[in-house]
Amino acid sequence: MTFPSPATTATATDADDSVTGVAEPAPAIVGRSPGQLMWRRFRRDKTGVISAVIVLFFVLVALAAPLISALYGKDPDTTYGLDNPGLLNDYGNPVLPNGGMSSDFWFGIEPSLGRDVFMQLVYGIRTSLSIALAATVATTVIGIVVGIVAGYAGGRTDYFIGRTIDVLLSFPSTLFIIAFMPVVENLLVKPDEETPTWLRAAALIIFLTVFGWAGLARLLRGNVLSLREREFVEAARVTGASPTRIIFKELLPNLWTPILIQSTLLLPALVTSEAALSFLGVGMIEPVPDWGRMFLRGTEVYQTDITYLMFPGIALLIFVVAFNLLGDSVRDAFDPKIRR
């Protein structure tokens, strides 16, 4: 194991940690795990904490969508504008200025269909975040497994995996997903049937995963290659530790840093990828509320109702900025040597 010995950990924290002195009666030497150290450094990073709060807010919105819907008194599917005359004009545009924003419809109403934009966005965030999160988890797991196998096994396995990664990274992924989606539908759905929502979501997650893992796997392979030759792994091998033990107890604990950093960068990238696919019409389709699909609708109606596009756009901008800042802070907290 390469964890720093308790003694060095304690001196390192004491040196840069004056906050703990208040809680403890005497500057006693306390051993802290790398995880605790990371958490302490992270807590002191204001930008990181604020962006984490923003990201958490989005996650909460996604989780609590039904609750928000109940409190707000509307749902994403009802066509309020069509049901109640006076909300939309003859051209299907909101009567009130700014996309029909009012105390009843906070973010306005959708042109022509007359659905509530606030509810569409809340449920849209829920759809997009769930898909992106599932894809991130799958990507990370596959990336870890393949990366460790390639790096640890070496030889022919490594060569084969390496070439597979080369091919995958040269694949025009967006285009391929766009192209292959109709083929999947053709294969699994009868021509006269609608594609079920779960199938679209599953296909999106699988495609995003297939093209996502290669980068992480390549990175981890490199890390494993250098770790494999280190003394502590050699020592474990000499004492007769099984490959399972070496991988889980010796290698994996040293890989959590790059893994966590990569997945914090991966999630916003996958959210925007999913949004882009829906924008291009191959992601989630009507009537499922979706963040990306709102952009598609927004670009259809922007000449008459720009407000409709603003809400998903600004929400996505805030989300991605917060996540990128969070990613930077996580990296700083894990790896204080890198100073940007």
Partner: peptide
Amino acid sequence: LIGASVQIYFVGTLAMY
């Protein structure tokens, strides 16, 4: 940071509008 986080289909459409 903002440039890296913004989407073409959002800025592009805003610019068009």
